[in-house]
């Protein structure tokens, strides 16, 4: 309690961590989508090593939070589901990175 202020300062960036992004699988998904313009399910499966079901479940959560846009389009004659980070998703990811950096910087040696 005496270190409440201190504790408050230390806790604050941690409390601001976006739990939606912080989950390891979702973090991988968002990081991969961040570095490209858009990608399909197979790309994310290959890059993240997640199964289709797992990936689908995480993407649903990210889509619900409006971090990811799922767009169905045709490439040639084959239907494809392309995934893209929304502006909100990109900003959320940048904020997450900033907060994580602050958390690590404030941790004692």
């Amino acid at each position: 309690m005496s270190s409440k202020k201190e504790g408050g300062e230390t806790q604050s960036p941690i409390m601001e961590i976006d739990k939606l992004i912080h989950e390891p699988a979702r973090l991988m998904i968002i990081a991969h989508l961040y570095v490209v313009e858009s990608a399909d399910f197979l790309f994310l499966m290959r890059q993240t090593g997640l199964t289709f079901g797992n990936l689908s479940s995480h993407l649903s959560k990210l889509e619900k939070a409006d971090y990811v846009k799922i767009k169905k389009e045709f490439i040639g004659k084959k239907p494809h589901t392309m995934l893209k980070l929304t502006k909100k998703g990109r900003e959320a990811f940048l904020t997450y990175r900033k907060n994580m950096k602050q958390v690590f910087e404030k941790l004692p040696e």
Binding site: V35, V36, E37, S38, A39, D40, F41, L42, F43, M82
Partner: peptide
């Protein structure tokens, strides 16, 4: 078909 489609960034 093995790696998936991706559009790389600007």
């Amino acid at each position: 078909p093995r790696l998936g489609h991706v559009k790389f960034s600007q």
